[in-house]
Simulated assay, not measured.
Amino acid sequence: MIRHIVLVRFQPAVSSAVIDDLFAELHQIEGKLPGLLSITSGRSESPERIERGYLHGFVADFSNWEALEAYQQHPDHKRFGARLVAHAEGGLDGILVFDLPAQTEGSPT
């Protein structure tokens, strides 16, 4: 499984309603792509408070690298990504992406 982790530092003027709309758009891709297992999105609730301005984000789990590639090429993802970049502080500089191969329950490390 591949865990696609995206953290966003939104521009200060971006409202909660716009952020909610962005994440609603993101979730619309669920069920459209084989190998997209789940998406979880929202605002950090970390008690450590060391987000360094990256207060929002999402995690999308994919069955394999090919499924992640299909997601990255999908027109819905490209449209969503452009909107996300437009609202992030500094554009692409306000977004962190980390792709982590993760074991699923019962699989070897």
Rank of each mutant, 00 (worst) to 15 (best):
I19L: 05
L100M: 15
A88I: 02
Q72P: 04
Y71F: 14
E45N: 09
A70H: 04
L68N: 10
D99N: 12
D21G: 12
L96Y: 08
P34Q: 07
A88Y: 03
L22A: 08
S15Q: 06
L92Q: 11
R9P: 10
S15V: 03
E48L: 10
E51D: 11
P34E: 11
K78R: 15
S16L: 13
F80E: 12
V97P: 04
A86H: 10
K32T: 11
K78G: 03
A82W: 05
I2S: 00
A13K: 12
F80R: 01
Q73E: 15
L7K: 12
A67P: 02
D93A: 13
E69Y: 06
T109F: 14
I2F: 04
E69T: 14
A67V: 02
E30R: 14
P101K: 14
F62Y: 02
I50R: 15
H27E: 12
L55S: 04
A70L: 06
W65L: 10
V6P: 15
Q103P: 00
H56M: 01
L22Y: 04
P108G: 07
G31M: 01
E51A: 12
Y71R: 01
V6G: 13
G53M: 08
Q72M: 13
L37V: 14
G94V: 02
E66F: 02
G91F: 09
E105T: 11
D76G: 01
R3Q: 15
L96G: 12
K32S: 12
A102Q: 13
A86C: 04
R83H: 12
S44K: 09
E105S: 13
G94I: 03
R9N: 15
D21F: 01
A82P: 06
P34M: 00
P12C: 02
